[in-house]
């Protein structure tokens, strides 16, 4: 599948933002600190920028509001509805913390639920597609949610600057869980036997082996550009190592260093580096998520 830059940026940024919103909604950080207030703003900004960037790949973005109408059947519509609905508790939470230093548990938990459901809806857009075998599994929402939480915990740790050992320990655990889930996901994806073949796509398997003789047109078309992307597949093994190292190993190392350094600017700086590394790693992971995915229509090409 063609990895549209705006979609990768959207799932990475909003995933991180929702992960942070979950940590904040659970009240792990002290609402009276300036760093916590900044974390609330950062969470809203990440989600907002992510959602805006998701509009960029649309052919007619001025009609995007229509996407809120079909929540009965469409995961994309559900995602839009949930994203907007979740903004209400998240903004109220942020206002409460920023202006009154007060954390409200009920409002916080509503925000947590909204954030998790939104990330789940995003992942189900992909997981619900039977045409892309590597996405069509329950492991896809699991990976999206765990990666979002891992990023959120790491970012919350960076904002707290080593003053939240609980958050740092949870970050370590969830990064490891996300890594395991992603490894299982990728192992399944790379060993997957495709359900559809050129033989089933043409119905000519009863005669023999089917091979494309001539394309419909000499050059590319929308389908081959959108579903037949190949560039990153060539470097998939290298990029997977990059995602593995930046997304999980470096953040774990920075967490350990930060915990050893205790609280203070050193810990904060190290954790910020960890967040940057994690963001890069997840970005590459998302790139591969799209670029490595094989679509059933390519049985015709």
């Amino acid at each position: 599948m063609h990895p549209a830059f705006s979609i990768i940026l959207f799932t990475t940024l909003s995933g991180l933002g929702y992960g942070l919103a979950v940590v904040l909604g659970l009240g792990f950080l002290d609402p009276s600190l300036l760093s916590t207030k900044l974390a609330y703003l950062a969470s809203l900004a990440l989600i907002g920028i992510g959602l805006l960037s998701s509009l960029l790949h649309l052919g007619n973005p001025q009609r995007a509001w229509r996407a809120l109408s079909q929540w009965r059947s469409s995961w994309l519509s559900r995602e839009g509805v949930m994203a907007i609905a979740t903004f209400v508790p998240l903004t109220l939470n942020a206002t409460l913390v920023i202006f009154t230093d007060r954390y409200d548990a009920i409002l916080g938990l509503i925000g947590v639920l909204g954030a998790l459901v939104t990330v789940y809806c995003t992942s189900m857009i992909y997981a619900s597609l039977r045409t892309v075998g590597s996405w069509h599994t329950r492991l896809t929402p699991l990976c999206f949610i765990l990666i979002s939480l891992a990023g959120g915990l790491l970012l919350a740790g960076a904002f707290a600057g080593g003053n939240a050992l609980m958050v740092e320990l949870l970050a370590l655990a969830v990064i490891l869980l996300a890594l395991i889930a992603k490894m299982v996901w990728r192992n399944r994806a790379t060993t997957l036997v495709p359900v559809s073949t050129p033989e089933s796509a043409t119905g000519l398997g009863f005669i023999g082996k089917v091979r494309l003789f001539e394309r419909p047109h000499a050059l590319d078309n929308y389908l081959t550009r959108e579903m037949g992307f190949r560039v990153a597949r060539k470097h998939a093994a290298k990029l997977w190592v990059v995602a593995f190292f930046f997304g999980a190993i470096l953040p774990i190392l920075t967490l350990l260093i930060a915990m050893a350094a205790g609280s203070g600017p050193t810990a904060q700086l190290v954790l910020v580096a960890g967040v940057v590394a994690h963001f890069l790693g997840v970005f590459v992971e998302r790139w591969l998520f799209f670029a490595e995915a094989k679509h059933a229509v390519m049985n015709y090409y």
């Binding site: 996407a67 579903m227 015709y300």
Partner: peptide, 20 residues
């Protein structure tokens, strides 16, 4: 009503839909 998100083309196994 179409916003041109392309998701229907992703959902179609037969390549029946093309974005203009």
């Amino acid at each position: 009503k179409c916003i041109g998100c392309g998701l229907c083309a992703w959902a179609c196994a037969y390549g029946a839909r093309e974005m203009d």
